Amino acid sequence: MLQLLCGRISQHGPALLSKPLRYLPFRIQAPLVERLLNRILAEPIQDGELDFLRGRRLQVWVPDLHYRLTLSFGDGGLFQLDDDDADVVIRGDLNDLIRLSAGKWDPDTLFFQRRLLITGDTELGLECKNLLDRLEPGRQPLWLQRLLAVLAGMLTRAEQSATNSGERPAG
């Protein structure tokens, strides 16, 4: 029963999340996203690991959510931009990004499987990929580590269930 529930969530979760993200106004969304990301990335920001983004535009595109997050970096930390212009775009489905963030998959594996795509400024894209390599789950706040571990576990159960039933796993 748990595997069935996990399978449903992994298959339909992105569709459920896409509507609130699509309809949440930017003026409400931006401060929430900025606070969250700056809190999650507080240590790398303090260590100067995001300085390469100063004045540059990074977009994270999650196609299965129909969501694009465009960010830049300045004196106040990361901030969200209200447009789709970007120097570099990192594209990946939600389930892959969850596993990547939880440390279950590494960026190189996803990149070579073409599940994580980086387009635009090659040098900036390489810096972003290297940052992903350095962002180990142990550097994340404990609450986020736990949440990502639960979500990654659900995705693993869903994949096992799909494999056992002969279905194609979702992400």
Rank of each mutant, 00 (worst) to 15 (best):
D93Y: 02
W105P: 01
G74T: 03
R56A: 09
N95I: 00
T70H: 13
V88R: 08
D64N: 14
L58N: 12
L97T: 13
G74C: 06
D96K: 04
F79Y: 15
Q80R: 11
F73H: 12
A102K: 03
P107H: 04
L100K: 00
R56Y: 07
V60H: 05
V62F: 10
R91K: 09
L58A: 05
A86N: 07
V60K: 07
D64M: 08
G76W: 15
L71F: 04
Q80F: 04
L78R: 09
L65P: 15
L65V: 04
S72W: 10
W61D: 13
D108H: 15
P107F: 15
P107D: 12
L53I: 04
A86H: 06
V60R: 08
G55W: 04
L100G: 07
L58I: 09
L81Y: 12
V60Y: 09
L94H: 00
V60C: 05
A86T: 05
R57G: 04
R57F: 07
D96Q: 14
N95M: 07
D96H: 13
R99W: 01
A86Q: 08
F73Q: 14
Y67C: 08
T109H: 07
R54A: 12
R54P: 06
I90H: 07
F79E: 10
P107T: 01
L69F: 05
G74Q: 06
Q59I: 00
D93P: 00
Q59D: 03
L97Y: 06
S101V: 12
L94C: 03
D87T: 03
D84Y: 11
D83Q: 07
W61M: 02
S101W: 05
W61G: 05
F73P: 13
L53A: 02
D83M: 01
G77P: 07
T70K: 08
D75P: 15
L94E: 06
L58V: 11
T70R: 10
L53R: 01
L78C: 14
L97M: 14
G74D: 15
V60F: 13
D87E: 06
L58T: 08
V89T: 13
T109Y: 13
D84T: 10
L81A: 12
I90T: 10
W105Q: 12
D106G: 15
D108Y: 14
N95Y: 01
D93V: 01
R68H: 11
H66Q: 14
V89I: 13
T109A: 13
Q80L: 11
D64V: 02
D108I: 14
P107E: 06
L81C: 08
R99S: 03
I90E: 02
A86C: 05
S101Y: 07
L71P: 14
I98V: 12
D93W: 04
A102P: 06
T70I: 03
L78K: 06
Q80P: 07
F73E: 10
F73Y: 11
L71K: 02
V62Y: 11
S72E: 06
I98M: 08
